[in-house]
Design a protein around this nucleic acid. Sequence first.
DNA 1: GAAGGAAACTGGACCGCGGTCCGTTTGAGA
DNA 2: TCTCAAACGGACCGCGGTCCAGTTTCCTTC
Lengths: 228, 228
Amino acid sequence: MLYAGLMSAVPPPFPKPEETVGPPELLQLGTGIEEDEPCLRADAARNRARLLEAAARLVAEHGAAAVTMEAVAAAASVGKGTVFRRFGDRTGLLMALLDHSEKKFQAALLGGPPPLGPGAPPVERLRAFGCAMLRRSIDELELQLAAEPSAERRYTSAPRRFLRGHVALLLRQAVPDADSELLSHTLLAYLDAALVHHLTEQCGMPPERLRAGWLDLVARVTRTERPA
Amino acid sequence: MLYAGLMSAVPPPFPKPEETVGPPELLQLGTGIEEDEPCLRADAARNRARLLEAAARLVAEHGAAAVTMEAVAAAASVGKGTVFRRFGDRTGLLMALLDHSEKKFQAALLGGPPPLGPGAPPVERLRAFGCAMLRRSIDELELQLAAEPSAERRYTSAPRRFLRGHVALLLRQAVPDADSELLSHTLLAYLDAALVHHLTEQCGMPPERLRAGWLDLVARVTRTERPA
DNA sequence: GAAGGAAACTGGACCGCGGTCCGTTTGAGA
DNA sequence: TCTCAAACGGACCGCGGTCCAGTTTCCTTC
């Protein structure tokens, strides 16, 4: 019984931190550029903005490892408890930092021009999706790595669920006979930030090879031919 | 400069903790059942054994979350520094706990009976490999999850490198025209402990479906037909 | 527009754990 | 027996995360 309390999901001390993106499976696109969470008290909104700005500055100046909760709180002239109340934990803060580019990407998938957005055949959209993800991963590698949730929560974060839903949707159209839910996990795994980091930084693979690998993978999984 | 020292790989305070398995890419099979690391002073070997036994007991009695370095040290009547000297960090300790089953699995791959071991056609060996991995993941889920290294080291741990080498080898035989290095990462990702945990525990998928998904994935990747 | 009260927010003391350091002890070869 | 590298152990540090007493905001009611 010594450690009994450690394992159960205890209710958080404050109501609820913040969800990075709309809860269920598909987000509703807003006006396009809205920044603040809707219902936030004036002081809370101000502190939230200051915290994000301070965190971004720390990342830019000292790298993601310098983003300790205490440092961010101090840099924003705010108490430590406030940071946790707003973002839940360190991962939540880092994910909030990535949220802007995340939202933009989701908008491009849902309403942007083809082949990334709707209008192109599904296999082509899959190809474009992977290439865009690889670009994004390479650009924001450090932050994406630092923001990686613990193993238990890795597959339940809102952005992840959205991406998976998107890929599964395209797969259902492209290969109706397959278990598109499982296949979508496989495809997304190829684009995982940690893997991309390993291959590019630690193995020295050129991004071009990763891109070619993605096109090949899509071709095999959908049993189509690789594009010319 | 405030955090300059945090990012570089500092030399460890003691010579070198311990590698879970032979360094390069392929392990050399020993007599089959050797337990201790070769050159270890008597007191060190004794403490190592006591630590592993204490850790295993803690896992069995209170779950992997109860395996804190301090608790293990105390349970083994040993200093905290000793635990770190022997195993490097928490991940190292947990991986050492998994080492026995790991070694057995590697032996089965290298010298066991087909289709897991050599002798069967490569595609068939791939199928068997995945099913065996799924079984193992499901059995040791908690420990495997707890032992997951940080994102930076996830793809460089010795067991991981071995498994990847094995899959890449089979892929080279089965689909010589593909980028088997990249494909092997994709296949291994399907068998990742965290994903298996998510699908079985959080989504409630029956293991049978995962197994079918693996067979389908292998078929697509190798451009073969699913077995009867 | 003033008053008042509940809900939300704040901030810093506090805790436990992973990881490091360094003075002390011990075991094995000469 | 002597010597010294190796191993030991516990004090120490920084960080993520929690708690709670005090403060602020906003909404309702007059």
